[in-house]
Design a binder for these strands. Structure first.
Lengths: 348, 348
DNA sequence: CTGAAAGCGCTTACAG
DNA sequence: CTGAAAGCGCTTACAG
């Protein structure tokens, strides 16, 4: 790129001071009282030379990379269907850049290979944030135990690894409580994912808790498994519709899965919410435009990213945490798919 | 982190060779014929010490960062509604990591500040990829003219800046041609964005070209502006529905905008596609689950990311391009919203 | 209030 | 086939 870029040496020379002073001035090193005159000279020289400290040099001498690695563990397919991930990313990026950190994005297809340790060992990043389905992963645990700053979006119970998550269980409880308020007692559940994922388990817990508080017994046949896809919602809903005791309302723990469920209901000529009320989970951007507009529970995606970024940086700085994890609140969004008595949109 | 991490010096010592040799072996420097015995010794020592070359040192001495900056220029709101961005990101990340590059993600809210030059000047990245609405941006042009490797996803006409994009104009043409094939001649257009964005202009060009080839004159009142949102589609469609000469089919150049348009149509009790056929653009994941399932044009999001990553790396390596830009093909996806004669889903 | 000097961990001509 | 040495551009004790 054209002329050689200027270094702190050039600045020092032009300003007639030492590189030490240049560094002190430009980094605003506290405690170093530099005379106003010198400071001015340095600043002016830097401006004049269009000086930008070379980050590589800085990194090498400081030992810090000022870089957070954001590792996506979900499959390509999951990523593509994850409307929130982008918001999460933006949340992380925004807070990181405020703290002068950069975000390194990494999608990992194959957990075996332990690619994240690489990022650390090579001093690429100062800390790591993980997003995705968190299974038993010895590498992760190992990193944590070696004292490396890692943070989960989501949770790995009993590992002690710090996390940031939405309070999904409470969100699910709120959703089901809303159905109960509307007068429903026969309430089905279609999960967002297989039960081996804690994220599905949490939603079920919330479902059960809401029923419990209302003294409604849990009826196992009303509980069906989804797997992130509309197709799975379609199937699961058909099972519920075919069962002898049909629920009058269903909590589908993922809006995307709910889309399939809605299709199944419509195909039978049933009306939502009159015949079956549906509440989803996530509040994907499209939820408001489904037919009928879908009641759901909004996840604070951006907030999760933000909080994750902030906590990761705190970890990196060695700050102590009072608690192991952070749970962010969800928000109940009531639309036409559960609001009995309200007119749904006119149909063609 | 526990014990001090080992350096190339440690490896050299343990292997009984010089650091030079260690570097040669570990980097597989071509042309340096190292004896098999020495190579073995070095490799073994490295393994034994769990040696990972410190990237910071490497960067400083080599002057390369092995990092591509991916700069998002769209507003936060746009990002949130952009179902493709994530796929694009994954495309970039995938190809980058194959070439040993890392991806630095950066969301820029304020183009004035020229934050990208910073990324370059500080030697943070070797090259930059830009995504988002590309307006006149002197900073961008300046970077290009200074010879820095930058690449656009999308196009800035007449700047000579290399780009990767979908062949949107042809995609739009295909969509409208499809409507014409279905027997329509009164065909409306609702754009994805304001006309000052080249992306909207391109879609209109395709629309006009398809009409032209079929000898259908362009009727200006049939052309309405959208602005990325369903709300704008709702409004624009209402204008079309209120106009004396109502189109029998509308090309809505964004699925998201089409969602609003569909709502407007349904509210009037009109049927899709019997009364009005609709074709969208983008093929968002939800398009297949709209009611009726939406015909649309699929953008190769992942492919764009991939191609952008690859070209950026080539630029960085100083390879010459035969052509200034790459245009990737779109794909016509026909569903029920345009297929006359096919039954739409049963309605509640 | 400021500077000379060492050091961060690599790579890479240059010698031999 | 391999090594001694310089250099990348910073930061940061240590002196004064």
């Amino acid at each position: 790129m054209t002329a050689k870029r200027s270094t702190s040496f050039d600045v020092a020379e032009l300003a007639g001071v030492s590189r030490t002073t240049v560094s002190f001035v430009l980094n605003n090193v506290p405690g170093m009282s530099i005379s106003e005159a010198t400071r001015k000279k340095v600043l002016e020289a830097a401006r004049q030379l269009n000086y930008h400290p070379n980050e590589s040099g800085r990194r090498l001498s400081s030992g810090k990379s000022k870089m957070i690695g954001l590792v996506l563990l979900q499959s390509a397919e999951q990523v593509f269907n994850d409307a929130f991930l982008l918001q999460v990313l933006m949340g992380v990026e925004t807070i990181a850049s405020q703290y002068g950190f950069h975000v390194l994005l990494r999608h990992i297809k194959n957990t075996d290979h332990d690619e994240y340790s690489q990022l650390i060992n090579e001093n690429h990043v100062d800390g790591l944030i993980f997003s995705g389905p968190l299974q038993e992963d010895p590498n992760l645990l190992n990193l944590h135990q070696r004292g490396f700053p890692i943070l989960l979006m989501g949770q790995m119970p009993d590992t002690g690894i710090p996390f940031v998550d939405a309070d999904v269980e409470r969100g699910a409880e709120t959703a089901v409580a809303h159905l109960i308020e509307q007068g429903h007692t026969d309430i089905g559940l279609i999960t967002n994912a297989q039960f081996r994922y804690s994220t599905a388990q949490q939603r079920k817990n919330g479902y059960c808790r809401a029923l419990g508080k209302a003294n409604i017994p849990v009826y196992e046949p009303f509980i069906q498994e989804g797997d992130y896809t509309p197709g799975s919602g379609y199937q699961a809903m058909n099972v519920l519709l075919d069962s002898p005791a049909r629920p009058s309302a269903v909590f589908v723990a993922s809006d995307v899965v709910a889309i399939g469920a809605i299709q199944a209901i419509k195909q039978r000529g049933l009306r939502i919410p009159q015949d079956i009320a549906i509440i989803g989970f996530d509040d994907i951007p499209m939820a408001a435009y489904l037919d009928p507009p879908l009641s759901t529970v909004r996840l604070p995606a951006y907030g999760i990213g933000w909080a994750a970024g902030e906590h990761s940086i705190r970890q990196i700085r060695g700050e102590e945490f009072k608690s192991q994890g952070v749970l962010l609140d969800t928000e109940l969004i009531v639309r036409q798919s559960t609001r009995n008595g309200l007119k749904t949109q006119s149909q063609s």
